[in-house]
Amino acid sequence: MHPFDYVAATSIAEVNSILAQHGNRARPLVGGTDLLVQLRGGRFDLDAVVDIKGVPEANVLELNGALKMGSAVPLAVMYEDQAVRDAYPGLIDCAELIGGIQIQSRASMAANLCNSTPSGDTICPMIVHSAQVNITGANGDRTVAVEDFCTGPGRNVLEDGEWVLDIVFPAPASGFGAAYERFIPRNEMDIAVAGAASSVTLDGSGKITDALVALASVGPTPVFVTAITDLLVGKEPTEENFVAAGKIAYDAVSPISDMRGTIEQRRHLSGVLTRRTLTKATERAKAG
C-alpha cells in the first residue's frame, strides 16, 4: 500500500485546504469501511486522508421539520435517535441493514453516497425522500439532488477538492410514507442482489399525490424510475396499480449478470420489491 498521511481536521477550512493542496491524491475519511479497504486493495493510491469526524458541521444531526444530517454521522447514531426514527422510518430501513453493528458504528449515509456503488443501500432511500446534498470545497459551495449525484459505478459529480458536508431531507409532508427493502440470499451482512426504495404521499381522500421509486443494484447507478411517478399520481394506492408500477420497474432497469444474480432475477426482483415497498410506504403514509 502506498504510504499516506493522516490529518484529523477540526474545521471545514482545514479540510478544504488539504483537499485543495492534494487534488485527487487526498480524500475525506469517515468510517473507513470502504476507503481503507480500497486503499489496501490497491484500487487507487492517496498521499493523504483527511478525517472529517472532528469537524463540528459534519457531525450535525438536526431535526427541525427538515432533517440535516452531517456527512460524518454514523448510521448507528442516526438510527438510535428516537425522533429521527419516528420521522423517517424509510431511512431507518436501510441504516439498520448495512453490514453488521461494527460497520453501522462507523459508516455514514453521506459516505455511502460518495462511494457511489449501484448497490449502496442508503442511496435509493435518500432519493425517494427528495434529499439534497450540500457539497463544499475551496472553490465554493453547491447543492445537488441525490438522484443527480452518482454518474457511474464508483463515480459521482464531486470534483477534485470537493466533499459532502451534509445532506438535507425535507420535512415529510402530511400523508407521506417511505420504505426500503433489498433481496440478499443471507439474513444479514450481504450486498443487495437488488433493492427498492419507495415513497408515497396520499391526500385526504387517500389518492396518491406523489410516488417516488428508486432501485439499487440494477444499473450502473441507482435507477430513479420517474415513469412510476407519472403512472401513480392521481390514482388509488391499490394492489393492481402497484403491480403495474412493478412492471414499469422491470422494464426500466438495466442490470448485469454477476456472482450475485442474473439479469432476469434482478428484473424480477425489481418488480417484486417495487410492489412491496410501495405497499409498505402506503401503510406508513396512512399510519403517519
Binding site: A8, G31, A76, I103
Partner: peptide
Amino acid sequence: EMNGRIVDSCCVLGAE
C-alpha cells in the same frame, strides 16, 4: 470497542 461502540479494527487507522 472504540469510544463505546464496537468497530472492525482493520477498518480504523491507529492514528484515529
